[in-house]
Amino acid sequence: MICIKQLHKSFGSLEVLKGIDLTINKNQVVVLLGSSGSGKSTLLRCINFLEFYDQGEVWINNKKIDFHQTDLNKVREEVGMVFQHFNLFPHKTVLENIIEAPIYVKKMKKQEAEHTALELLAKVGLKDKAGEYPHMLSGGQKQRVAIARALAMEPKVMLFDEPTSALDPELVGEVLQVMKQLASEGITMVVVTHEMGFAKEVADQVVFMDEGKILEQAPPHVFFNQPESERSKKFLRRVL
């Protein structure tokens, strides 16, 4: 599904990714763990080309993406992203947020787009909020709308960049619930998170990153019970 080879990325003199190799299979949920500054988010943003890497290769669906030649808009249509700060469009209603890209990018008929949008809203439990503006919603509701908005493009893979980090603790559960549901439906997901419970329960693979490198990659029961490196043991002692 997604294959990353020897990815390097620097911001100025700071090397954030130091040769990442990672394969994400179809229908898998991969959770990226690591302390802040370890390069998790940058790696995620390289997959949908919000950041351009300096060296290496990204393959999506057996196609090598060359960001000078490939139409990145087409790539991004197939890679949905959910942001830490939701990034809903404040001047549009919940429904308008969701139908915007299907109508203007996929050229879907408005009626059809609205029909799909309402189904997605029902799925995330917010059908009654279709006409509201984002500022009327709680953080958890905003994030669920953002998930519905990304799903409306029918992406082949969903990227989650710390989707619950900006939420009040009591609102985290409702967002994780939706994400668990997506995982159970077999949607391919790459999740950067600090929610260890989610990683343990939902992930097929846990990837532990430190200082721009992948230190460990294992199924969650292996990673959480028998971490290999000293660094990951230390990390787990702190967060668990």
Binding site: N48, V79, G80, E100
Partner: peptide, 14 residues
Amino acid sequence: DKGQMEAARSLGMP
């Protein structure tokens, strides 16, 4: 906010 442009681009909008 830059996130607005990023969100739009991530949805495939040119």
